[in-house]
């Protein structure tokens, strides 16, 4: 198992603590001019999202997490589960809606997502920052109203709801920011 020594500590490392994978979000080095150094890591649990802070003495080491980033293509939904295929080796994985979080709102057949595997099991799915989805249902918009500050709820083809400007019509394509869940613009077919 690969390990990281305190001199390797830096933001962005993926490490394993008590059997769980963490992403280092902050790495700090403190040391009195004459005296032993203390290395502090702030880490985010990649499964649960909780944050952990630990101190280390110089020379200590921690296990690297067997975490891999790969591309997962969304194939189909099976009951409460979502099936993805690793585009590198065609291996298929099932994730529960709980594991997906809000990502399900932006998934349609074939969507390519960033998939993080821990010990070969998927733990998170991140859809592309921007996705284009079809409007499945909304109330008709007032003709000629091009104001963007008047919004209405719109149901997208994935079944998720989003707030769009009043001029958006059924059957149109819209671009959505998956990080904020906000409407960006209409897209011509």
């Amino acid at each position: 198992m690969a390990t990281y020594n305190t001199s390797d500590f830096r933001k962005g490392l993926k490490v394993q603590i008590d059997g769980e994978p963490y992403l280092v979000i902050e790495s700090n080095f403190r040391k009195p001019g004459k005296g032993n150094a203390i290395y502090t890591l702030r880490m985010k649990n990649l499964v649960r999202g909780t944050v952990l802070e630990r101190n280390y003495k110089g020379g200590e080491s921690i296990e690297a997490a067997d975490v891999e980033e790969t591309e997962g293509q969304f194939l189909y939904r099976q009951g409460e589960n979502y099936v993805f295929m690793d585009t590198a080796n065609y291996e298929q994985y099932e994730l529960s809606s709980e594991q997906l979080g809000d990502a399900w709102k932006y998934l349609k057949d074939g969507t390519l997502c960033q998939m993080i595997l821990f010990e070969s099991n998927p733990i998170t799915i991140t859809p592309p920052n921007h996705v284009v989805l079809k409007v499945e249902y909304c109330e008709p918009g007032a003709k000629g109203n091009t104001a963007t500050n008047v919004t209405k709820p719109v149901k997208m083809e994935t079944g998720a709801e989003i707030h769009c400007p009043a001029f958006v019509e059924m059957g149109e394509l819209i671009r959505v920011d998956t990080r904020t869940g906000e409407y960006i613009e209409r897209v011509k077919e």
Binding site: N36, N55, E60
Partner: peptide, 21 residues
Amino acid sequence: GLAVPAQLGDEIDDWRNLLLL
């Protein structure tokens, strides 16, 4: 509530420096 390094040991100066920092 300090996070004590697992391998701090019993060197008194290491402890003093932890509390100092």
